[in-house]
Computed example of a mutant assay.
Amino acid sequence: MATFDTQPPRPDDAGFAASGRRVFEIEAAALAAVAERLDGDFTQACRLMLQARGRVVCTGMGKSGHVARKIAATMASTGTPAFYVHPGEAGHGDLGMITDADVVLALSYSGESDEVLMLLPGLKRQGNRLITMTGRPNSTLAREADVHLDVSVPAEACPIHLAPTSSTTASLAMGDALAVALMEARGFTADDFARSHPAGALGRRLLLHIGDIMHRGDEIPRVNADATLSETLVEMSRKRLGMTAVVDADNRLLGLYTDGDLRRSLDDRAIDLRSTRIDEVMTRSPRTIGPEALAVEAAQLMEAHKISGLLVVDDDGRVAGALNIHDLLRARVV
Rank of each mutant, 00 (worst) to 15 (best):
T228N: 08
L229I: 01
G309K: 06
V153A: 09
E219K: 03
D41R: 07
L311Q: 12
L208D: 00
L130C: 14
P9Y: 03
I210K: 04
I325H: 04
C158W: 05
F193M: 07
N128Q: 08
N128Y: 14
G20Q: 05
K70A: 08
I71Q: 03
C46H: 07
D114K: 13
A331N: 01
T43H: 09
L182W: 01
A185S: 03
A76C: 00
V247A: 13
I307D: 14
T99S: 12
G309H: 08
E36G: 00
D327S: 10
D191A: 02
H305F: 15
A157F: 15
R332S: 14
E219T: 03
E36L: 01
L301F: 14
R318N: 01
H66M: 07
M183R: 00
A33N: 04
L233M: 08
A227Y: 12
A73E: 10
A35D: 13
A270R: 03
M133L: 14
A173W: 00
G111A: 09
I271N: 10
D267I: 05
Y257Q: 04
S285F: 13
F4C: 15
S108R: 00
N251R: 09
D226G: 03
R55S: 11
V116E: 05
E297F: 08
E297H: 03
A179Q: 01
R330F: 02
V116F: 12
L328A: 12
R129W: 14
A32V: 05
V234R: 13
L241W: 01
V56Q: 01
L149D: 11
G187D: 01
D146L: 12
M174S: 09
D272S: 12
R284F: 07
A29F: 05
A32Q: 03
N224T: 00
S196F: 14
A30V: 03
A157L: 15
R330Q: 07
N324R: 11
L149I: 11
H215V: 05
L323T: 10
E303R: 15
D212H: 04
P8N: 13
A227R: 08
L311G: 06
S285I: 15
D146R: 10
K124W: 13
E144D: 13
D314S: 04
Y84I: 10
A293R: 07
E27H: 04
F4E: 14
D100L: 14
A270M: 06
R69S: 05
L149P: 08
M243R: 01
L130P: 13
S110A: 09
V151A: 10
E184A: 07
A155K: 12
A270K: 02
Q44H: 11
E156P: 07
V333D: 15
C58M: 14
E115H: 00
L178V: 06
A35I: 14
A249P: 04
S19Q: 02
V334E: 11
F24G: 03
A194I: 02
D267C: 01
S108I: 09
Q44F: 10
S230H: 08
K239P: 12
G321T: 08
E112N: 07
H92D: 08
D250F: 02
P198T: 04
M61S: 10
V223W: 05
R222D: 01
E292C: 02
R240Q: 15
D5S: 07
D12W: 12
G260H: 09
I289K: 06
